[in-house]
Design a protein around this nucleic acid. Structure first.
Lengths: 251, 251
DNA sequence: TTTTCAATATGTAAATTTTACATATTGATG
DNA sequence: CATCAATATGTAAAATTTACATATTGAAAA
């Protein structure tokens, strides 16, 4: 995108503003574990969150949606802005520019960048992880098997998880992380993975059912060893209401 | 701040990034009312929130602190980032540039600006509202006597209030909004002003005292018509602990 | 001086919510 | 057919939240 107005250009040159980027913490749930989608920078062994520059004409939400769709192949993603990271020394620019010297010429690094953080909740099974032009790999990683991340992305990831944990205390989650049909233990394990602690199955079921966001189907999941659990599915209308109201939810 | 590196300049020209600004919603409490500090643009009758451009070398928090200190004369202000506003059409640029034509030359308006929103809680009595170079007036306004605001500042103000309301459900407020000594009814009215609803005085007192954040002094406030209320003051240590833990608080 | 007035101080019972806790069922496996 | 382990399920205690009314007091008015 080129500046349309030559006078704008003059201003831009005289008062440089920080570069604006956007980073996405994409959460998925699989095998009882909360996972995050990471990219590995081309020709290196360095990982980071997927992200990119916010373009002149797009809104922040558009930029986040664009990045998310490109990395996952999904449209209609649940995403939420959680924090903008703007410390002067968010990370060691020298160190990063050295590590990524083979991918990004040194002169491409801005004096500083400010990054808007978004987190997304996606259905793991539907995602096709897709690297971007800067990366040669895009993969899920469990929260307890995270590599060291470039920039301040470890911090951003941690902050995203903090926000997610806070928000699920008031809002339902799961519509975006779980498949269409799921069992109560699956849903519970999702909450356990997010909250990082054990939940009592009786109390959990009581609260979820009381909230009305899920409906019990008559079908059971076959093929599991031991007793077959019932399938549940979301009551989208009720789910939306509870999501809207923000109240009446607590695990 | 001038670009140090000529190559950076080239990049900056080829891929223009949005202008980054910062707006502050400064809350004060006076006469039983929640107030917001507004500025009136020079030679006009148009009002907005205090704000400014984020400079190249300063962190977002530094920028917010700078703006807050300049408008209020206070240092050590409680402030919190709550949201970054980045819609493509946050406001009608044409309309604003016309309204402010006498203050800001038209060519100064960026194609778009993204604004980081901060809110602050300050002690009304200690504030010396000070206009900036763009404004000829800086004044407190009650929430129910707000003028129409420029840009999308009405929206930003509303969002700030939403965040504040959510956050005071988990964190104590008051240390920053109230004077050193205050009465229980004063504190309650502050909560009522923020929450926009009546609170039962008996239940309120019970919860506040149980949380341990305030200490009852033996002194009463004289000169009020009718029965004299006791003064209370904050237990800073306990207050900090509760603020930190984020839990154990609800009105 | 006395009376009036209105804001302040204060406690208890009911309702609701949260927490703690254990066993019978069942489907696959061997 | 026996074993195993995950699933399904209810109740009682504890904690929290809500609802609610009256005596006190200092200033102001009579």
């Amino acid at each position: 995108m080129i500046v349309s107005n030559p006078e704008l250009l003059a201003i831009q040159n005289s008062e440089v503003v920080p570069q604006l980027t956007l980073d996405c913490v994409i959460f998925g749930f699989h095998a009882g574990q909360l996972k995050v989608l990471l990219v590995k920078w081309k020709g290196t062994n360095f990982w980071s969150l997927p992200g990119g520059v916010v373009r002149q004409s797009e809104s922040l939400n558009d930029a986040a949606t664009r990045i998310l769709t490109q990395r996952t192949g999904l449209v209609d993603i649940f995403l939420r802005q959680f924090h903008t990271f703007g410390d002067s020394n968010r990370y060691d620019k020298e160190s990063v520019s050295e590590k990524l010297a083979s991918v990004v010429p040194k002169h491409m690094w801005y004096d500083r960048a400010i990054s808007v953080g978004y987190y997304a909740l996606v259905n793991y099974a539907q995602v096709f992880p897709t690297p971007d032009e800067m990366s040669d790999s895009c993969e899920w990683r469990g929260l307890d098997e995270l590599p060291e991340l470039l920039f301040d992305h470890s911090e951003i990831l941690k902050t995203a998880l903090d926000y997610l944990r806070k928000e699920i205390a008031h809002q339902p989650v799961g519509l975006n992380l779980l498949p269409l049909k799921f069992t109560m233990p699956e849903m519970m394990r999702m909450y356990e993975a997010i909250l990082g602690r054990k939940i009592d199955p009786r109390n959990f079921q009581k609260k979820i059912l009381k909230s009305g966001i899920v409906i019990k189907s008559k079908e059971v999941k076959k093929g599991t060893a031991h007793r077959s659990p019932f399938f549940y599915y979301f009551d989208n209308k009720k789910y939306g209401e509870v999501l809207q109201s923000g109240s009446l939810f607590f695990i």
